[in-house]
Design a protein around this nucleic acid. Sequence first.
DNA 1: AACAAGTGCAACCGCCTGGGG
DNA 2: GCCCCAGGCGGTTGCACTTGT
Length: 304
Amino acid sequence: MGRSPCCAKEGVNRGAWTAMEDKILTDYIKANGEGKWRNLPKKAGLRRCGKSCRLRWLNYLRPDIKRGNITLDEEELIIRLHNLLGNRWSLIAGRLPGRTDNEIKNYWNTTIGRKLQSSSSNSGFVSSRPSLSSFQGSPKSALEKLTIDDTLMPVEPRVSHAKAPACPKALLSPASCQDREAQAPDMVDDKDQSSDRHEDQVTTVRASDGNSNVSCNFMADFELDANFLEAFLESELATDTQQSCFVNSGLDDSHKRELPSLTSSRDSQENLAFIDHGETILSEPDLQCMASLLEDEIDGFITT
DNA sequence: AACAAGTGCAACCGCCTGGGG
DNA sequence: GCCCCAGGCGGTTGCACTTGT
């Protein structure tokens, strides 16, 4: 038996919301709070699907929604987070106060993605990532100034298709991959057997020393505490406001080491993530930074 | 001025997960 | 352990608006 539809199609308004509907929904949520979306339309007197109400509220009516164009800083952040997370728009949006996942997704699919697509159609890969801050003007103008060699990513980063719950995954350094393979070949085999299922969910990371034989899945199939990824992102984003960062949200003291700042050094070629034939290649400092965090976390996980 | 093509974005859709019974 | 429900997610669509010819 199939799942019952979230709401009946008949007698339900569809399409653009009217100002009156917006007001009814806003007033109701202000009075009763969010949640119970399925019952909300009936109680509020709206002829809308509950999911539609939720979407309208979250993406448009919520008071903390930030209006206006995506700023240059926000765009840089989106790009960096997308490098890390792929198409996990809700996670990315969580790092951009006032921005919704839908807005970021749309922005990526139009402004950024389109530009990248046109660039990558001329070149299968790119070799470096320049700082968008080095461009003057709007994000669009910055993107328009990107040359083929400056392009950030391939059209379809291989991290992209994981659903949100897949977020508690580990990032592995090449070394840790080799260790993992040596220590737990069964696990590797298991993963290989399911590679079809996960092939499009992983990004391969290689050491930037040119040793392309050393590779592993960027987001491997370890089920880690979701807080870890959050903590890692906190540490990454902390670099926006200070020259160095400390992991200080959820990790134990052993993780509170100074990390190289991706932001402060983003104009340095050697610290930039770049792409080679559709695979994300993180530079050595990035890898060391992430690997040191992640290997400890993974070791702890494996031994438990 | 008229039309076509391109663009941006709100909204919809189907699937997945977690929680509760 | 199974089932159902609510909520959440990413992908896709549809349409209004803008730009180019």
